[in-house]
C-alpha cells in the first residue's frame, strides 16, 4: 500500500463528505439563516425543519409510499430472480446465453425510453397511481440486476453440495430452502441492498407513474423546489431523511458488500 494511495483516499473522502456536511448543516438551520448572511457552520441550530416534515402528512405519507413500493419491488425481484439465478448457475439450456444478454439489456435501457408505454400500460390495466405500478416498473432494472448478482454468487457454490443433498435422500425443495438458501444468505442480503439502492433512488419512472395518491418522497421534494418558494431548510431536512434508510441497509450488509459490488464474480 503506497503512501500516495492513502493521500488520494483521504482527499477523496473529504470531497465526499463536504457536500453531505453542507446538506446536514442546512437541515438544522432556519431558512432565514440560510438565505441571510453566509455561515460555514449553522448559526442557530434548530430541529424545526424536521418537525415540519413529521407533522405534515404530505411529507410523511410520501415517505410511506416510497418505502411501500421499494419493499414490494424487492420482494418481487428476489422471488423471481432466485430460481432463475439457480437455473443459470447450474445448467446449460436452450438459449441461455441469449436470455442472459437480453436480461442485461433491460438493466441498461434508459427508463426514459419506457416512459410513454408504461404510462399507457399502467393506465390501461388500472394500476396507475399505485405503489404496485412503480414497483413493477422498477422490476425492469432490479430483476436483471438481481439475476446477475445472484448468478455470480451461486456459481461460486460447489455443485458437490447439490449432489450430496441428493445422496442424502433430501427432496429438491428441502435442499433448496433449508440448505442452499441459508448458505447464500450473504448473497441474498447484497441483492436486497442493490434492489433497494436502485428502486429507492429512482425518480423518473416513480414520478410518471404516480399521481396524487401514491406520490413518492422524491417527487414531493422536486415539487417543493418549484412550488413553495424554496424552503431550503425543509428541503435539506427531507434530503437527510432520505439518506437514512440507505445507511441502515448498508450497515446490515456491510460484511458482504465488497463481494456484492463485484457482482459475486471476483475470483
Amino acid at each position: 500500500m503506497s503512501r500516495s494511495g492513502r493521500w488520494i483516499l483521504c482527499a477523496y473522502l473529504v470531497y465526499l463528505v463536504l457536500p453531505l456536511y453542507w446538506l446536514f448543516s442546512m437541515a438544522i438551520s432556519s431558512n432565514a439563516d440560510i438565505v441571510g448572511e453566509f455561515n460555514a457552520f449553522p448559526a442557530a441550530p434548530t430541529l424545526a425543519n424536521f418537525a415540519e416534515i413529521f407533522s405534515n402528512p404530505v411529507w410523511y405519507q410520501a415517505f410511506g409510499n416510497s418505502l411501500t413500493y421499494v419493499f414490494i419491488n424487492t420482494l418481487i425481484s428476489l422471488a423471481v430472480a432466485i430460481p432463475a439465478a439457480y437455473a443459470f448457475s447450474r445448467y446449460r439450456f436452450l438459449g441461455d446465453k441469449q436470455l442472459f444478454f437480453w436480461l442485461l439489456t433491460n438493466r441498461m435501457a434508459p427508463p426514459a425510453v419506457f416512459l410513454l408505454p408504461f404510462f399507457q400500460l399502467y393506465s390501461a390495466i388500472g394500476l396507475f397511481d399505485t405503489p404496485l405500478a412503480v414497483a413493477l416498473a422498477h422490476c425492469l432494472f432490479t430483476v436483471p440486476l438481481s439475476v446477475w448478482i445472484l448468478e455470480g454468487f451461486f456459481s461460486g457454490v460447489p455443485t458437490e453440495l447439490d449432489e450430496m443433498a441428493q445422496l442424502d435422500g433430501h427432496s429438491f425443495g428441502y435442499f433448496f430452502l433449508r440448505v442452499f438458501l441459508p448458505i447464500n444468505r450473504g448473497a441474498i442480503g447484497v441483492t436486497l441492498f442493490f434492489c433497494f439502492m436502485f428502486s429507492w433512488v429512482e425518480l423518473l419512472l416513480a414520478r410518471t407513474l404516480s399521481g396524487a395518491e401514491a406520490k413518492p418522497i422524491v417527487v414531493v421534494m422536486t415539487r417543493t423546489v418549484s412550488a413553495s418558494g424554496l424552503d431550503w431548510g425543509v428541503l435539506a431536512a427531507a434530503g437527510v431523511l432520505t439518506v437514512l434508510p440507505g445507511v441502515l441497509v448498508v450497515w446490515f450488509v456491510r460484511k458482504d458488500l465488497v463481494k456484492g459490488f463485484a457482482l459475486g464474480r471476483v475470483s
Partner: peptide
C-alpha cells in the same frame, strides 16, 4: 476498513434527485 467502505457507499444510496439538490445547495 468497514467504516471507509460504508462512507464510500453513501453517495450511491442517496436518491438521485437528492444528489441534485445536495449539489444545488452546495
Amino acid at each position: 476498513t468497514p467504516l471507509i467502505l460504508i462512507v464510500l457507499a453513501l453517495p450511491l444510496l442517496i436518491p438521485w434527485n437528492v444528489v441534485g439538490t445536495i449539489w444545488q445547495i452546495f
